[in-house]
Design a protein around this nucleic acid. Structure first.
Lengths: 114, 114
DNA sequence: CCTTAATATGCCTTGACAGGTATATTCCAT
DNA sequence: ATGGAATATACCTGTCAAGGCATATTAAGG
């Protein structure tokens, strides 16, 4: 489970992360809010913790889990290349699509090959 | 493999997507650039295609694959809640950390500093 | 047609991971 | 100390996905 991308591939883990956006939560709270069995919650939290997505503080028998930014920011950074791609190509793409809609189809008959 | 998150969990698929940012590519180009066996490339491209990450146009025996924005934008949208979280809490967190650095920790009875 | 290039698909094996259930651990209160 | 709450871990099992290899498909060119 090394990579952040694998970690967030699991829907329950994404749900836990989303839940922790609003505030830190104990395991029991997560269990009740997401209606997941407690061992399942604990296991996912372990994965999230080891990947740096969350950290916990001890409060008696409870553990309060909260978000940490780094791994999600890593994902965000990876996405950045595509964001720049979309914005750079959006105008050209739009014009291209406009052209395709207007002209039926020009088949490549010029014999160019590679 | 339904979800976009599962699709990008695979490192080779992320590599393919990153490669396609610069321009569209044939399967053979991807194969050579990423040094992956051809069936592996084709299988990953199939997954990417079925999930809407790429689309292909036929060029003789070649297929030219290029990016499509939607699935990555979906991931981007999911990340948005966390971006707002970081920016909303960043100042408060920073002040909190400043305080922690300045004032000695209560549990720390030994008086040692770090 | 036949061959070759480019790509796709099928089959098989292997490994990882998630869920379920039971049990262990830790800490509080009495 | 003992019991009980909160959480973690162990073990087992089924599933599913990825890689390797062989083979099928499709198109082009001679």
């Amino acid at each position: 489970m090394e990579s952040a991308f694998e970690v967030i591939a699991e829907p329950n883990r994404r749900a836990i992360l989303s839940l922790l956006v609003s505030s830190q939560r104990s395991v029991g709270e997560i269990e009740r809010r997401l209606r997941m069995p407690q061992p399942t919650v604990s296991k996912h939290l372990r994965v999230l913790r080891e990947a740096g997505f969350v950290e916990a503080t001890v409060d008696a028998q409870r553990r309060l889990y909260r978000l940490r930014p780094e791994p999600l920011q890593e994902v965000d950074a990876w996405l950045d290349q595509f964001r720049r791609f979309w914005s750079a190509h959006f105008d050209a793409l739009e014009r291209h699509l406009d052209r395709m809609e207007q002209s039926p189809q020009k088949k490549n008959k010029d014999g160019k090959k590679r």
